[in-house]
Design a binder for these strands. Structure first.
Lengths: 163, 163
DNA sequence: TTATGTGCAAAGGTTTTGCAATAGT
DNA sequence: ACTATTGCAAAACCTTTGCACATAA
């Protein structure tokens, strides 16, 4: 969690105007424990009785992502883009296939592998994307049967997700 | 590359009818060196003078993905889903940020890490998704300047992609 | 004052769906 | 014959855009 002053400094640093919308959206993102969609941000703004247009939310998110104040995740929620406050930490996620909870995990197991692959392929590797899938302790108890096949029966589930 | 007989066997095994459309779509996927979008499949069918509706392509892909004959990648091409023939190999990808080429890489560096994470988090981990990004040898030569910042200036580029 | 940001309404693009007709088993 | 599959057209869905107005610097 950061404070309003930091948001203002960040916006100034990026040459962006410090509008109320941007400050509140940064605040919402910063205080979300889960990555959020544009629609969810829109809803939370309504909750706070802040009048804003959905297209402004999209435009603001684009601007913030472009300026790297916000990160757009590769994990999607049924085709909707997910966003989170950019804490400038290289981070991976553990996604529960039962309750769809997303948990950031610390550390990255790929630094060495990445370098090794650069040598093998001749690519200059600039980054990577890693998400892990499974069932959280709660969902393991609630749906013990479907755990290994849940994603097989769900047409929306991500591929590339195998044992 | 497999042959038409295998496609038929696979469809039978899944309890699916062996229609001409499905056989050709499997053939197209099987012979693509790059993952393809529904639209690309549609175009290749037109090239072969095969009359088909785009929605049938979508429905067919859904069915094939559901039955695990085809894999839907998590990498997307500007919001369009990519598909490939399921060779039943656990596989990761190296994506060139210059020419957008996608290269499958062998092996998986995450088996141990995955088990370790299970113990730490209490999750039952059922799979993961890993893509790596960079610049292929050709693109390294052609765009030596923009290599480390290309994705920063591209609003469409994937996030989660850092050093 | 001037460039940037915003609201509104409309369009964009991919993907999904309802229903009647067709084709596989 | 029975059911799964398909074509067609329309809708759904998230997201983007044009233009006039408003706001921050």
């Amino acid at each position: 969690m950061t404070d309003r002053l930091t948001y203002k400094q960040d916006l100034t640093h990026c040459g962006l105007k410090k509008t109320r919308h941007r400050l509140v959206i940064l605040d919402i993102l910063d205080h979300s424990d889960q990555p959020v969609t544009a629609e969810q941000i829109f809803a939370r703004l309504q909750d706070r009785r802040i009048a804003i247009n959905l297209s402004t939310v999209y435009r603001t998110l684009d601007t913030l992502v472009l300026n790297k104040l916000v990160t757009r995740l590769s994990i999607t929620q049924d085709g909707r883009a997910l966003h989170e406050y950019n804490r400038r930490v290289h981070r991976h996620y553990l996604v529960c296939q039962g309750c769809r909870k997303i948990i950031p995990i610390d550390g990255c197991p790929l630094a060495d592998y990445s370098r090794q692959l650069e040598q093998e392929t001749g690519f200059q590797i600039s980054g990577h994307k890693l998400d892990l899938y499974g069932f959280c302790p709660q969902c393991r108890q609630q749906h013990p049967e479907g755990q290994r096949t849940a994603h097989a029966s769900d047409p929306k589930s991500q591929a590339n997700c195998e044992d």
